[in-house]
Amino acid sequence: MATATTTDFTPSPAPAIAVKSKEALMDAVEDIVYGSIAGVAGKYIEYPFDTVKVRLQSQPDTLPLLYHGPLDCFKQSIRSDGLYSLYRGISAPLVGAALETSSLFFWERVGRELLFTSNLYSRSQPLPLSALWLTGAISGAFTSLVLTPVELVKCKIQVPAGSTVAPRPLSVIREVYRHQGLRGFWHGQLGTLIRETGGCAAWFGSKETVTLLFRRWNSSSPSSPSSPGLQTNLNHNPQNLPTTSSPDLAPLPLWQQALAGASAGMSYNFLFFPADTIKSRMQTVAADSTAPQVKFWQEGKAIFRAYGLKGLYRGCGITVARSVPSSALIFVVFDALKGGLQFS
């Protein structure tokens, strides 16, 4: 006699997993596309200031200073070559800006997923500020590998060694590869790694910190409407930072989003500026130079001996100033494209 068998009709979790995987993939694609658009928009604002910054940073120690400050550098550059000279070599940085910003947002999301999958934090609760500073550092460390070759080409175009004629990106790439091989494109990588790891921790962390302060201010202000979900979230977990992607949080007004983004840019550029100064000095040396390549710490010591701490922060003021509108625009554009912005 045949025995009857029972069939388990418990639904398989496979469809749910597939849906989550598809959503994660779409979020990653959005981060890359929207980050690229935001990065290009920000680059057009900041590039002239970046050119001045690199020219101030790369002045040799053995000669009298060519520029006496940012305004003098602006005037001399425009007087000698016109306004176009401040946009010299922007084609490579535009590509770099798209790669950089998309990479930053992509790897920051990967960092969050790592914290969730490692069971350090629950997806049902917003990540605390310390975790968001950590995901920013993770994002910067990975992005530095993409940035170093792009910035090396950019610096050599902005400050052509031994010539007043700006080389084209392809000619710079050929020159570096001919004399230094593939490894030469990562000359100055340590400086980029230090700047991006610490700077991006501050970039994302400062933005989210200011965002949290605005959310708390909005929730406590009788004239500022806030969603019930926001008030419940903040009261339940006051040390945690709600993310702008949380579905139960109202988007910030435009001016608050811009201020949060501006604070991110200032923090990023000021805190680790000496690493950027050293990197720029290393990357503006001619590719065919017969002199042995100077190591990161050796270059830093040489600048400090010649000019002190002031030399390591040469060009910092204009860099921080340029980061205010560019970083604000990057976050505003990115959040607007992601649907997390309130135009009021």
Rank of each mutant, 00 (worst) to 15 (best):
G39C: 05
A14P: 03
S326I: 06
P15G: 08
T232S: 12
V294P: 02
V294Q: 13
G188T: 04
A141L: 15
A92F: 02
N240H: 15
T62N: 15
K279E: 13
L56H: 04
V146R: 01
Q293N: 06
A4K: 13
L127S: 10
L190K: 08
V54P: 01
L230M: 11
E100Y: 10
G265E: 02
L337M: 15
L212V: 03
F105R: 12
L83M: 14
I90S: 05
W133V: 14
T51H: 14
L63K: 13
I303A: 02
I45L: 15
S246F: 04
P292S: 07
L104R: 02
T277P: 00
H236D: 11
C73T: 13
R322H: 11
R195N: 13
L115W: 07
A24M: 11
P325K: 10
T3D: 08
Q59G: 05
F334A: 11
F106D: 08
S227T: 13
S326A: 14
H236A: 14
L104P: 01
C155W: 00
P64I: 07
S226V: 04
R178C: 08
Q298V: 06
L249Y: 05
Y44Q: 06
G140A: 08
P242C: 09
I278C: 04
W203S: 00
L329H: 06
V52Y: 05
V210K: 01
L94W: 03
Q180V: 00
L193Y: 07
F105G: 00
M26H: 10
D8C: 13
S118T: 14
A4T: 12
P13R: 00
